[in-house]
């Protein structure tokens, strides 16, 4: 079996894998990082979004062998293990941006990426448009939009701010 080496949440990992292993399977099954979820099989729901070399990608549509040598950040690595929550995580809690929690890791990773690309001052329209790749069945998106706007502002504040990578 071919070997893959990655940096996942700051830690180097190396493993032999079946070539057909998707990044999401590698994270969930090899590394037991089960915060990254699978909600569809057509690359649409966004429950599997992680950051690959600093950019949001769908880990269900990425062969782990394709990204050998890359750096991956998952929801588990967004904030320091013993530190405070990432401002975007905190914003989701404060604004009730989640209900069942299943889409939440992907939403938060997408939201941080959105801020990285679009800045800290995000209006309602921009956020809704940029959420095109993330489905939520519980919240009607209302409080997710609110959470992201607040999280984006908080990320500018510096407190606990860090690049996701």
């Amino acid at each position: 079996m071919p070997t893959v080496s990655l940096t996942v949440n700051g830690k180097a990992v190396t493993a032999d894998v079946d070539p057909r292993t998707l990044l999401v399977q590698f994270l969930r099954e090899h590394l037991r990082l089960t915060g990254t979820h699978v909600g569809c099989d057509t690359s649409q729901c966004g429950a599997c979004v992680v950051h690959l070399d600093g950019k949001a990608v769908k880990s269900c549509t990425t062969l782990v062998l394709s990204i050998n040598g890359s750096s991956v950040t998952t929801i588990e690595g967004l904030a320091d293990a013993n530190g405070p929550l990432h401002p975007m995580q905190e914003a989701f809690r404060q604004n009730h941006g989640l209900q069942c929690g299943y889409c939440t890791p992907g939403m938060i990773m997408a939201a941080v990426d959105m801020v990285n690309r679009k800045g800290n001052d995000l209006d309602d329209h921009t956020i809704r448009k940029e959420l095109d790749g993330n489905l939520c069945r519980c919240t009607g998106y209302h409080n997710i939009v609110k959470s992201i706007a607040a999280g984006a502002r908080a990320m500018a504040g510096g407190a606990g701010q860090q690049a996701a990578e």
């Binding site: 915060g35 998952t74 929801i75 929550l85 809690r93 929690g101």
Partner: peptide, 9 residues
């Protein structure tokens, strides 16, 4: 929420 926003559900 703590466990869901940190991927620990």
């Amino acid at each position: 929420d703590q466990r869901f926003i940190t991927g620990k559900g």
